[in-house]
Amino acid sequence: MNDLQKGPSMQLSRVIVSLPVADRRASFAFYRDGLGLDAIGEAAQDGVPEPLQFALNDGLRLMLVPSGGFGWVIGGREVAGRDQSECVFSLHADDEAAVAEVIERAHRAGGSVVTPPGPQPWGYAGAFCDPDGHVWMVTSQTLLV
């Protein structure tokens, strides 16, 4: 048993995933209108809550941070460009029609389709990018059991 296995398990009551964005208003509109998420907090002068956060469920929030501020938080590391992906977010949908609907809503709201909905070895899935190039996969089959 190594040192990491010996310690008590840590329970995280809330996780916030932060993503860099080029345009707060465009990203706000995409996640509100395209994915139907409700932003948390009062609107700032530009009509967008600050900080810009969405509750995805009871313990998970998505925070969208302007690229300049994101660069400050990560200590001078390079912020990935729009055409670079360092992770893929996955959403579960109830069935194939729901997968197609989420992909279509994202596309209508300004996202781009990365992989059209269709059968995959692990289930039925499709993927889209938000306006800043962050990849979201929608699947009707749970990838990890």
Rank of each mutant, 00 (worst) to 15 (best):
F54D: 09
V73G: 06
A125H: 06
A106D: 01
V99G: 07
L12T: 13
P8S: 14
G34V: 05
Q11C: 02
G118N: 05
A97P: 12
S27H: 09
L143V: 10
G71N: 06
C129D: 13
A43L: 08
H134F: 10
V113Y: 00
L60D: 00
A109P: 06
G71A: 15
A80D: 08
G71Y: 04
P117R: 02
A125R: 11
G59C: 09
E86C: 00
W122V: 06
E96P: 02
F70W: 03
A106W: 01
A106Y: 02
G76E: 05
L4Q: 14
L62E: 03
W122G: 06
A55S: 15
V99Y: 02
G71D: 07
H134L: 08
D33L: 04
G133W: 02
D3V: 09
V17P: 06
S140E: 07
Q11P: 01
F128K: 00
A39Q: 10
P121H: 07
G123M: 04
V102S: 11
V48S: 07
D83T: 12
V138G: 03
S112G: 12
G36N: 11
P116D: 09
G110R: 09
A100F: 01
A98N: 09
G41P: 04
V88E: 11
L4I: 12
Y124S: 07
G68L: 03
P116Y: 03
V99C: 10
R14W: 01
M10K: 14
S140A: 15
S140N: 10
L52Q: 06
D83V: 05
G69H: 05
V113R: 00
R25E: 11
L4T: 13
I16E: 12
V114I: 12
E96M: 08
Q11L: 12
R105V: 02
Q120N: 13
E104Q: 13
W122C: 08
V79C: 09
G41Y: 06
P121A: 13
A39C: 10
V21H: 10
V145R: 12
V17C: 14
P119H: 11
R24N: 04
P20Y: 06
D130V: 06
Q5Y: 04
S27K: 08
A29T: 13
G110N: 09
G7S: 15
S112T: 15
T142V: 15
V65R: 03
D33W: 03
T139R: 08
P51M: 07
V99K: 00
R14E: 15
E96W: 00
A29Y: 05
Y124R: 00
G34Q: 07
A100P: 10
A29F: 03
V99I: 11
P121I: 04
Q141S: 15
A97D: 15
V135G: 07
A93Y: 01
G41R: 06
D23K: 06
G7H: 15
A127Y: 02
D94Y: 02
C129I: 02
P20H: 06
A22S: 15
